[in-house]
Design a protein around this nucleic acid. Structure first.
Lengths: 263, 263
DNA sequence: GTGCGGGGTTGACGCTGCGTCAAGGTCAAG
DNA sequence: CTTGACCTTGACGCAGCGTCAACCCCGCAC
């Protein structure tokens, strides 16, 4: 007669595991001795060892009973299925490894490399860090909506960075954020934005800006990206929008002509 | 302003997941509107997407925060470690596959093939199924104790199967179990067992029987293997032991000379 | 106004396979 | 008699949510 500890030792498991098997009905509760101890015999050890053999091979406890009772055919059927599950889990983990390797390789979180290249170039052209972060966040959102077309959009954005007006805008923006004479800078920025809008309109490119922004609610969402940068950036943006409106334009995410507002 | 459902949709997750991230502090609880609804903005969507990006790469939620805040060096250190964990999990699953493939390939549960070969041969020589099962259980127990030496023991056991006395014993045993004239058979069996014991003693092999049975408590355990076969087999064994004792021998697991008991 | 369908809210259990206290009773040895 | 090792039941913890339950809220058709 064995105690639970001896049983466990013979099978190479913990007593907790044995009790767990009792609880799930995998191992029958044995007789108790006068003081309530469970008393085991060889057949219990044998069954416990066979349970562990299956469990150690990745068989879920819920199916161990079935496998212990199965004939050759049922056994191999079940084993085939369990192996399929194991393979699926391995594939999943390998997919994880692939993704984490990509992240380690510089894929800034949730962004493909083309976008980080673009952002780096913005930085190099003098754009302030807050603006780069906002741009990054916007592209994270867009990439999550239309992952397949990001590289295509980036070609366009890279082309915009070749435009002298854009380059000037980024420089001025950088100065406006770091310096403390925003008012004059703001007017300059508004003029530059309007100039770019006029140019785009002249080339008939304003229709294309909807590509990355499928609907109005998504455009509204993109507008709130500025919240990341803190309240003073929100105020700065609002003042810029005001100046733009005086000049007959509205919107930064998608730009439209409007009735010029009063100054 | 987004509701939790819209937030979840933009990030491609479930609302339940979002609430879970709130609960574990991974995503800050946003403002509520007048009716208690959570109201989200773009920065929340961005953070949620980045959380998912890491989670989808196998990063445990408990470490996501850390990774989101890490610099390049800290990030790659952490990623290296997570990848190590992923590899370890994959190895474990592959080990499961290996084991389950072995089981499918005929490794009777918890027994190496040499033992099943031996058992098959016992069956072929006329040993009753109950006895084969008992022998199997005994070897399951032994294999769990001294896994490395099973094949060595089997060489010995196979040699015993070449002994005419043993073959005769197995045949008689088969008849004794199936037939209904046990008394005469029992005497015959006792004589055969004693004969084998005497021969083994003459060859000085009785010392070797301790190899597979390291201590007395383990021998006692092996004695209870008979319980698998039911009460009538227990009675049969006890009567056999009685007859053996009359002839000056005791024990079946490890045999010893004793004072002959009274008949 | 009312009913309906599709949101939202908190709270709590379920899953997998045990590990790990907690608060006791038992047993063999010194 | 004490000690230490073992036994007992009971219950929480873990990972990452899925899935009710029970109730509130909103916009729209009637």
């Amino acid at each position: 007669m064995l105690t639970i500890g001896q049983l466990a030792a013979y099978a190479g498991v913990t007593t907790r595991a044995v009790r767990h098997y009792h609880q799930v009905g995998l191992l029958p509760e044995p007789e108790r001795n006068h003081s309530g101890y469970r008393t085991y015999t060889a057949p219990d050890v044998v069954r416990l060892i066979r349970i562990r053999t299956l469990a150690d091979a990745g068989v879920p406890l819920a199916r161990v009973e079935e496998l212990l009772a199965a004939d050759d055919e049922g056994f191999s059927t079940a084993v085939t299925e369990i192996d399929r599950r194991l393979r699926a889990e391995i594939r999943e983990l390998q997919e994880h490894r692939r993704r984490i390797a990509q992240l380690a390789a510089g894929d800034s979180l949730a962004l493909p490399p083309t976008v980080t290249t673009y952002l780096d170039r913005m930085r190099a052209l003098g754009a302030p860090e807050v603006m780069v972060q906002m741009e990054r966040d916007a592209w994270i959102l867009i990439a999550a909506q239309v992952p397949g077309r990001i590289d295509e959009f980036m070609v366009e954005k890279e082309a915009q960075l070749d435009d002298p007006t854009m380059r000037r805008f980024l420089r001025v923006m950088g100065e406006a954020v770091s310096g403390d004479a925003p008012e004059g800078r703001l007017v300059e920025m508004a003029d530059l934005v309007v100039e770019m809008a006029e140019q785009a309109a002249a080339r008939g490119e304003l229709d294309g800006q909807d590509d990355a922004v499928p609907d109005q609610s998504f455009a509204d969402l993109l507008d709130t990206v500025v919240l990341t940068a803190g309240p003073e950036m929100v105020r700065l943006r609002d003042r810029l929008l005001g100046l733009m409106e005086e000049r007959g334009w509205s919107g930064l995410v998608r730009m439209e002509r409007v009735e010029p507002g009063g100054g």
